[in-house]
């Protein structure tokens, strides 16, 4: 009883302080900050859907990238080997631990100096453009082995382009159906 009374006084004090600050502040700003809590998160395509176990998918979405590696690399490696038990290395020369270490920190690296593509035969992970066939790239890295020749039936879904052409001008995405 006494404790809740004290809490109420503390709350009133905070409110009073907030009001005081608001009154002195810029009139353009809302008086009370609008706060948000994160629900979904995405860096590279298909990471949560493919590599995170069902029970951890929500947790992955609210783990900040700086902590994802520690929290998820081992589970990603287990999942990689479940998908491809014969995995040794891939086209990037990464073994299972190395590859999943990269994947578990789910950020998209983007170059500010030129070509931006998931993979175009030359540039690797310098961004993600609308037309990039990201699924084939990931299938190759998961199933294709060190020279992309292993499991040939699994390294392309044979859908290589969108069903509508993209625009050359802003906003670049095609009009809706």
């Amino acid at each position: 009883m006494k404790k809740s009374y004290l809490n109420r006084i503390a709350l009133l004090a905070v409110c009073a302080l907030t009001l005081a600050i608001s009154a002195c502040g810029d009139d353009d700003s809302p008086e009370i900050p609008i706060t948000f809590l994160q629900e979904d998160q995405m860096g590279r395509p298909a990471i949560n859907t493919v590599f995170v176990t069902s029970a951890s998918k929500d947790a992955f979405n609210v783990t900040t990238p700086s902590q994802q590696g520690n929290a998820f690399q081992a589970a990603f490696q287990t999942q990689l080997l479940a998908l491809n038990a014969g995995y040794t290395t891939n086209l990037l020369g990464l073994d299972a631990a190395g590859f999943t270490g990269v994947l578990a920190t789910d950020v998209l690296t983007v170059s500010l100096d030129g070509t931006t593509t998931f993979f175009d035969g030359t540039n690797v992970l310098t961004g993600r453009a609308l037309a990039d066939d990201v699924i084939d790239v990931e299938l190759i890295l998961i199933f294709g082995g060190p020279d992309a020749t292993q499991n040939p039936g699994l390294t392309s879904d044979n859908v290589s382009a969108n069903d509508k052409a993209f625009l050359n001008v802003f906003p670049y995405l095609a009009t809706p159906f």
Binding site: D40, P45, D58, V110, T115, A129
Partner: peptide, 21 residues
């Protein structure tokens, strides 16, 4: 991708970042 956001208004489907054409 996850039960907490599937088929909700906060479900992100995709993310792209590229140099402007």
């Amino acid at each position: 991708d996850a039960p907490g956001v599937a088929s909700t208004t906060s479900d992100i489907t995709d993310f792209y970042a590229f140099q402007s054409p």
